[in-house]
């Protein structure tokens, strides 16, 4: 099996992009000591608006400032790529709206219930060699593989 079978769109940009993501997480850790998973920002930002005791935990009220700035940085970095390194056409997706909304809801609910997502468990958790994160990654990879293939098999999206 040759490389183009595994990577029909090439492989360099995947590796370079992954290294850049890791560099972002490493830079945050070097200067602030903070762990840069992404899904917590959704709970921590709700703590500005919702008085419910869950959102008023110190881990959210104490981190909501930097998490919002970190999320803003995400948009800035993507904008730099779009304006400077792509052909400038706005990206769009063919994934149907219902799948984006329903899938998004489950992503938000599940990542917060499980306390981590692809970056929190996947990158930061595996990067600190935590076996609960490895189990979480194996779990969500399994259900994601099954769901994506069933959806395509049934022609839903």
């Amino acid at each position: 099996m040759d490389v183009s079978t595994l990577f029909p769109f090439g492989w360099q940009h995947y590796l370079l992009g992954g290294l850049a993501i890791g560099a972002g997480v490493a830079l945050l850790f070097l200067f602030t000591g903070l762990i840069g998973g992404m899904s917590s920002v959704f709970s921590s930002t709700w703590s500005y608006l919702v008085r419910n005791p869950y959102f008023q935990q110190a881990r959210y009220t104490g981190s909501r400032g930097w998490r919002l700035v970190y999320a803003a940085g995400l948009v800035v970095g993507a904008l730099v790529w779009w304006l400077g390194f792509s052909d400038g056409t706005p990206l769009h997706t063919e994934v149907p709206t219902w799948a984006l909304v329903v899938g998004g809801f489950l992503v938000g609910y599940g990542s917060r219930l499980g306390n981590g997502c692809t970056s929190g468990h996947g990158i930061c958790g595996l990067g600190s060699l935590q076996w609960p994160s490895l189990l979480a990654v194996l779990t969500f990879m399994a259900t994601a593989f099954i769901t994506a293939n069933l959806v395509s098999f049934w022609g839903l999206a």
Partner: peptide
Amino acid sequence: GAALFGIGWGLCGVCP
């Protein structure tokens, strides 16, 4: 949580 996250991720291809 991880199981639900994966179902949603597999449905829309978008994570946080």
